[in-house]
Design a protein around this nucleic acid. Structure first.
Lengths: 186, 186
DNA sequence: GTCTATAGAGTGATAGAC
DNA sequence: GTCTATCACTCTATAGAC
């Protein structure tokens, strides 16, 4: 057989970027074909379930990244202050300092959510729970409410940065949020 | 001529709901036909520019509502504390306590933003400016940064409520945001 | 009779599925 | 690449208010 042009992970990563740019509904197979260099035949060979399966795998890929880089460190770290700082470092890098959107948040906003309801719900629930665990370990009062507020603030900052076309907005919000969470720690 | 089945405003309102549900790219003319009860002929009679024109008019309609109900009161009210409380009342009603999304925020996230860049940018810029003006009048320090943070928090709360399928998240965030802004006033 | 809102068959292009 | 369904959109025709 011919060598694969792209590893499955590379394909999923590139498909994710198409979804980021156009949304799930707006991402056409021809755009995906162009971004991956894979013909329709190859795409349906890799993803027999079509766009829906691509969506599932993209979400699973994102979830795995956040689990390893964000949630697990938040839950397991001995020092909550260090863990929370590391979370913001990871998040700022992941979202390219506000130049990249959160695909899960974007999926949540329209009917796409209903196709991927469980993955979307779990992404945010686990993020909030992991952050709340770190905050609680650090002696914060109302850790869950504070974690919810922080995750919402990150999502809102991403919207605002893109709407205003100004990544600096994201940077300012992240700095403020770091300070708020640190202030809540005992 | 035959009587109009729908006023222009009613048509724009119903089209807006289709965009909210499916996103701009995902909103098909057949869905718009179904939601408005207007055939393609009627739709193209009212909106010769097609979906793009519908998008423009929906955004203009939203902008007019926020200008009258939110921005102007924030700028003009004598009592900033009252004005800010009124803003939250209006916002919570508009977003149906978290059951309805912000269409402008949703447009901002994907390539739709580029079609309507000016309208999207101005919606948020004017909201932030109007809120900052009220905060400044109330003696808050760093009113612009605080306003930015509040608007981001509202957008993030809408995403989170929908992602978790729990409108209570939005209610909690709005309550917390009210308290934060009040605390910043002299 | 004129004008405008209606309806919807029909256009080519392109979608996603296979 | 081929398939069928659906896309955004055009065009012709009609109904009805003036």
């Amino acid at each position: 057989m011919p060598a694969a042009l792209l590893s499955r992970e590379d394909a999923v990563t590139r498909i994710a970027e198409v979804f980021r740019e156009h949304g799930f509904a707006g991402a056409s197979l021809s755009a995906i074909t162009e971004a991956t260099g894979l013909g329709k035949g190859s795409l349906y060979n890799h993803f027999p379930g079509g766009k829906d399966q691509m969506g599932e795998e993209v979400l699973a890929h994102i979830d795995a990244w956040f689990e390893a880089q964000v949630y697990a460190p938040l839950r397991d770290s001995a020092d909550p202050r260090v863990a929370i700082a590391a979370m913001f470092d990871a998040v700022e890098a992941y979202f390219r300092s506000g130049r990249r959107i959160c695909l899960v948040g974007a999926f949540a906003l329209d009917a796409t959510r209903d196709r991927f309801a469980a993955a979307v719900q779990e992404y945010f629930a686990r993020w909030i729970d992991a952050l709340a665990a770190a905050l609680e370990k650090g002696g914060a009062t109302e850790p869950h409410a504070l974690a919810e507020s922080a995750v919402a603030g990150i999502q809102g900052a991403l919207i605002l940065s893109r709407a205003l076309n100004d990544p600096a907005v994201f940077g300012r919000q992240m700095q403020e949020m770091r300070a708020r969470l640190n202030a809540a720690l005992a």
